[in-house]
Design a protein around this nucleic acid. Structure first.
Lengths: 210, 210
DNA sequence: GTTTAAATTAAACGTTTGTTTAACTTTGCT
DNA sequence: AGCAAAGTTAAACAAACGTTTAATTTAAAC
């Protein structure tokens, strides 16, 4: 169902980048066709419409997401806090590796009208909450985590902080004196700083320890 | 410079709402003109262009922002943590009262190309950081706040969490059993929940206490 | 009351939009 | 080789886009 050929994958890849840079409505199918080096008609031919192309971009990335979720559910040897740490790091890595897609998600989740894409985002968030909540409640029952934890708000903070990093990157890079780092180095530095921040934050809230 | 007449204010108000709902490129000047009940040509006549109208929407809201900042700088009788609490509550209120504008900001801050609007957002964030940092460092020097505080990341968490609430509202309202509340009641409930969450979080990070 | 500027309008401007068409080429199968 | 399906193309499609024009009305000043 999702076995795309090279040309289709090229279109999806270019669309993802352009949608991230200029928004869905800010990107024309001609832009996409030109940068992907295909005829305009091929986009309708393969995907049906511009909207369906956006949906394809989403489904393409979200399949990888689902695998990422299930990996953690299986592992039952880790301590609750380690599981949370793992979740945080996986989220951070996902964001840093798929910045364009996450950028589109940040935009599209703001749309008020219902759409297939909005439903996919909603579904993804519900799954994440369904994964995080049992980890916390189980640890609470075991007396490891505190009882006064607002899991939904904690999720919101996790999502929000990580998503907010995308537009904050330029500010961080120019405001602090890390202009000498190249892109890869800055990415690593950002990963570590974000990870430390969020882990410290979650540990404090969940365990009242530092 | 910013004394708009009723018709201009109506256009700005409608534009803010539609830009928030459907995005800048997703909204046509004809949509705005129709809902504001003015002729299409009036938008160019008053604001010059669609881009300039977006800029006007921003400047209109950001003047109120600046006042909000200065109020807190003046007050020097509050304890550092109380100042932070006040900052948090003001941010939350601002977001809840200007959801449409904050929604536009969330979208526009993702644009990669430089633009007057992007510069305004950048400037606003810098001002916020410039306000929060001295509060923290002064409290650190006085031995009230911990030394290992990442202020930029804390700002990112504050912005991110509050902004993330906008798209998360529907999920919160349907997922939990607060469907019986009306809009105003739900807004108050949300304000309290957000406030408690962020204050607990900031207190923990800044003071290592609960 | 006349004059001058501002406000307002319907219509038209030239582009650009997403999508489709119809002709043509390539591919794979028998 | 012959045929059918899939792939590919340039061109055209109507609709919508942001903006401008030119004519008309309203308002203010003298």
């Amino acid at each position: 169902m999702e076995d795309y050929n090279d040309k289709q994958l090229s279109i999806i890849s270019v669309a993802e980048r352009l949608f991230a840079e200029k928004g869905f409505h800010g990107t024309s199918v001609r832009d996409i066709a030109q940068e992907a080096d295909v005829n305009i008609a091929m986009i309708s031919y393969y995907f049906g419409s511009k909207d369906k192309l956006l949906e394809a971009v989403f489904r393409h990335r979200m399949n990888a997401s689902r695998i990422f979720i299930n990996e953690l559910v299986e592992n039952n040897t880790m301590a609750p806090l380690e599981k949370i740490y793992s979740l945080i790091d996986r989220f951070i890595n996902k964001m840093l590796n798929e910045q364009n897609f996450q950028c589109i998600m940040s935009r599209e989740q703001l749309n008020k009208e219902q759409s297939p894409v909005r439903d996919l985002i909603w579904q993804l968030k519900s799954e994440m909450l369904g994964l995080m909540r049992p980890i916390v409640t189980n640890a609470q029952d075991a007396g490891i985590f505190m009882m006064d934890v607002d899991v939904e708000m904690l999720m919101t903070t996790l999502f929000g902080t990580i998503h907010q990093i995308i537009p904050a990157q330029h500010l961080l890079r120019t405001n602090t004196d890390y202009a000498h780092l190249n892109d890869q180095e800055f990415k690593e530095y950002l990963r570590l700083r974000l990870s430390n921040h969020l882990k410290k934050l979650f540990k404090a809230i969940l365990t009242h320890e530092f």
